[in-house]
Simulated assay, not measured.
Amino acid sequence: MSRTRALTTTAALAALALTGCGTGQNAAPEGETRTVNTAMGKVRVPVAPKRVVVLDTAELDSAITLGVKPVGATNAGTRSGFLGYLSKDQVSGIKNVGTIGSPNLEAVNELKPDLILSNKARDAKNYTSLKAIAPTVLTETTGYPWKENFRVHAAALGKKQAAAKAVAAYRAHARKVTDALGGPDRAKRTEVNIVRFVEGADTRVYGEKSYIATVLKDVGLGRPAVVHRATDGFSYDVSPERIDDADADALFYATYGDPKKAKETQILRSGLWKRMAAVRNERSFRIDDETWIQGIGYTAADTILDELQQRLG
C-alpha cells in the first residue's frame, strides 16, 4: 500500500468520524435495527448482522461460541494469527485486520462490516474512527467480567437464544467435572493455583478476579491464601526467590513469551520449585497459555474444564 493511499484512507476515515456521514452508527444502519446497551452508551445495531469484525480474543471466542464466523479479526500474535485452541475450520477465511489494540482502520473499512465488537481497554482510543465505519459495541473491559461481556456480545449479534444454550451447556459441563473430582466438598478441599511466567516481568499468580479464577470457582475448587494478596484481586507477582509462595495442592503453569526471558527455565530448575508440595507430589501441570489465559470465553472454558478433569481426576 502506498503512502499516498494510506494517508488518503486515514483522512477519509477521520472525515467520517467528524461529520457523522457514512455507514457507521452515526448514520442509522440499513434495515431493521435494535438497541444494545454498551460501555459507550446505547448503540443501534442490525437485527441480524452478517459482516462482523472482532478486535480482541474474547470477542472472537464469543462469536465462535455463538456460531458466528467474523469476516475480520485482529491478530493475537501467534503464527496463524489466532489462538491455538480454535480449530482451522472455526477461523478459516477470517481476514487479519491488524493487531489487538491497534486495528488497521483501512483493513476494517474494506471489509464493509455491519458490526464491530471490542472493549474499552483495547479500543476506547479508536472508538470514534471505528463507529464511523460501522456500529461499534464496546464492553468496559475484558477478562474477569467475561460472562457479562458475553451477554453483550450475544445481544449485539442477535444470538440470545444461542447464548442461553451455551451458558446452560457450560454449567452442566462444570457440574460434571465437579462430580468427577469427587463432589463439591472434595473439590473445595483441593486448593489450586495458576502461575504464569511472563517475559520481561515477574511471575504472576492469578487472583480471584481473573478469567481463569472464575472457571475454577465454577467447578468449586479451593484456592490458596496467596491469591488474596492479588492487586485489585487480579494477580500477585512473585520473584524467582519467592516462587514457593505459589504452592498449592495442584499447580497449573503457563508461559507468555520466551521461556528463558520469562524466567520459566530458571525457576523450574530451582530448588525452591522442586521442593514445592505440588511439584513433589506430581501435581504440577504445564498448560497452554492461549487457552487458559488469553482465550477468555466459553469455547476456551470448555477445553479448560476437560483438562481440569483429566489432570485432577
Rank of each mutant, 00 (worst) to 15 (best):
R242P: 09
E140F: 12
D249W: 11
V108M: 08
A169Q: 13
A248R: 05
M40L: 06
A11I: 11
R242V: 11
F82Y: 11
I293R: 12
N96C: 01
G297L: 02
S118K: 01
Y127M: 07
T9C: 04
A155S: 10
V137D: 00
N119W: 03
R269T: 11
Y206K: 04
L251T: 08
E106K: 14
R51V: 00
V47H: 11
L66P: 00
T255L: 13
R51W: 06
W292S: 06
Y211K: 06
T190R: 13
W292K: 07
A39V: 02
T203V: 12
A164H: 09
G200A: 05
R175K: 14
G67I: 08
G222S: 07
E241T: 13
V52Q: 02
L312W: 08
I64C: 07
K88N: 10
D185F: 12
F252S: 05
R269F: 13
E191P: 11
L60A: 05
G143F: 01
D306N: 06
V52F: 15
V152L: 09
A6Q: 14
R204T: 14
A58N: 09
S2V: 12
S102W: 01
A254T: 08
T255S: 15
T178K: 02
D258Q: 02
I133D: 04
K147I: 04
A132D: 03
K88F: 01
T19P: 06
R223W: 13
A246T: 10
A28W: 07
T303H: 12
G72V: 06
G222Q: 06
G77Y: 11
V45E: 07
P46L: 09
G20V: 08
A156K: 02
K42Q: 14
T190I: 07
G222H: 04
A11W: 12
A301K: 06
A15L: 14
E30R: 12
V238T: 00
T141G: 12
A48H: 15
A169C: 00
Y236D: 13
S2P: 02
F82G: 04
D237Y: 09
V43K: 01
K112E: 15
A156Y: 01
K120F: 04
A58T: 10
L105R: 09
N119Y: 03
A172F: 15
Y256T: 11
T65H: 10
S80C: 06
R311P: 04
S270A: 03
K274F: 00
I133N: 02
R196A: 13
V54K: 03
K165F: 08
A28R: 15
R151P: 07
F150P: 02
I296K: 13
S210F: 00
G20W: 06
V205R: 03
R122F: 07
G72Y: 00
V36Y: 11
V195Q: 04
E191F: 13
Q310L: 12
Q161E: 14
I304Y: 05
L7R: 15
V47F: 09
K217D: 15
L308Q: 10
A28Q: 15
I116L: 04
F197H: 07
E140V: 08
A180C: 08
A213P: 01
T231G: 07
